[in-house]
Design a protein around this nucleic acid. Structure first.
Lengths: 234, 234
DNA sequence: GTCTATACGGTGATAGAC
DNA sequence: GTCTATCACCGTATAGAC
């Protein structure tokens, strides 16, 4: 427990993470996890009571990996909605490039067991104001309110904020969820696909803002943004 | 086979469809399917050799349900890309409102068994020209070429056509795939959610065109489209 | 041709030796 | 703390009754 920097528990968890993310709960075999970890199958039961319990531990961690940073962004009342969108999209892509199976894994298990996940969300994401839902769901009033405000100022198009939020999330998730389809369709190698994802980050921000902003306001933002980018890179 | 309008085979298939779509292949239990069909579990093996075979039948049908109509639209060289987009997005939503679990089901099983699905695609979707990939993947040259053409004509923004295609697909799928999240986030009843999806159809077209088209060309399209819509409804 | 009973194989879980 | 042996269960497949 002291010297081993990769103690058994951690080895098991990483093996379980790989197998569960690839196969889902129902498709995963305890034997497979044991093989992946290079240990005896029974050790799994010694360290984690049951398959279900092991899964819950992994799922909760993975859920937090994705959701907590995003929730922090969306709940920050100091951040302007435009800055929220930029950070959200970039953060999403950066996390998911590291963990490309996470979106489909979370969505699939969530769909199979919504009640459980909603409970978990309460635990996983610390809530400051009690009224706020625990799911970082873009229903946060700040997000919606600021979009209404932008409309009133004549900066934003008359978009439905909820539809916009769903579109933005869809644009974020789809490249990861349909990895095989996209790769096959465009005949990409692994390297080309990673490059596509890296680039996609900025495209999604751009697409979102084209939907949200009136053309001239978008033009101004684009100019300002381009300058900032140039300054950063030089 | 003659008189019974719902013969056993059909009853089993519908039960299997429900359970497979809900649980996935690995999560589905033969007993569950039998219960759903109101028959003895062993009948499943009588009519369909194995779980795998039953699954393949269902999956192939479901795959065609979604893909064939979309492929027809995308492969039609007569259709202008703008008309392709409109029909694609509407067709997708209309089919998926009927079969809301289909997107996640197909994507999940596809991700778990890409090789098999790609083979299936060859069978399911008749290919006219041999070079064309069997997957209705938006890589069809007509789609890409027409976007380049629109750019050259100064109608379209300088968007990456592949990024646009992925965004459009993501906007289409996400509302269905993350049904629970969306419903929870916006606290919708069943009826409100269906209404949201019905409306979303036109929003996605709109979002896509805002990404694709230069502002004034978008304005012209919007005007023309609004008139057509008014004429249709009156 | 339709249905039932039983055998097989694999998975998750447990008891106990070292 | 680690591993072996074994159990109980469940889904699948087969054989055979009606």
């Amino acid at each position: 427990m002291t010297k081993k920097d990769h103690n058994t528990e951690e080895v098991i968890k990483e093996a379980a993470r790989i197998v569960f993310q690839r196969e889902g709960f129902a498709g995963a075999r305890m034997q497979e996890i044991a093989d992946e970890a290079g240990i005896n199958k029974m050790m799994l039961h010694y360290y984690f009571r049951s398959k279900q319990h092991l899964f819950d531990v992994i799922f909760e961690e993975d859920y937090s990996t994705l959701m907590v940073p995003l929730a922090v962004i969306l709940r920050n009342p100091e951040l302007h909605v435009e800055e929220q969108i930029i950070r959200f999209v970039r953060g999403y892509h950066e996390t998911m490039i590291e963990h490309p199976r996470l979106p489909l894994f979370l969505i699939h298990e969530f769909a199979k067991n919504p009640h459980k996940v909603l409970e978990m969300a309460q635990k996983a994401i610390p809530v400051s104001k009690s009224e706020e839902p625990a799911h970082p769901n873009l229903s946060a009033t700040t997000f919606m309110d600021q979009i209404e405000e932008g409309k009133a100022l004549g900066r934003y198009n008359d978009v439905d904020a909820r539809q916009l939020a769903v579109s933005m999330l869809g644009m974020c998730t789809h490249a990861f969820i349909s990895r095989i389809s996209v790769r096959t369709a465009y005949e990409m190698t692994d390297e080309q696909y990673v490059k596509f994802l890296e680039e996609r980050k900025e495209h999604v921000v751009d697409h979102t803002f084209r939907i949200l902003m009136k053309p001239d306001y978008y033009g101004k933002w684009k100019n300002k943004y381009q300058k900032e980018k140039d300054n950063t890179s030089t």
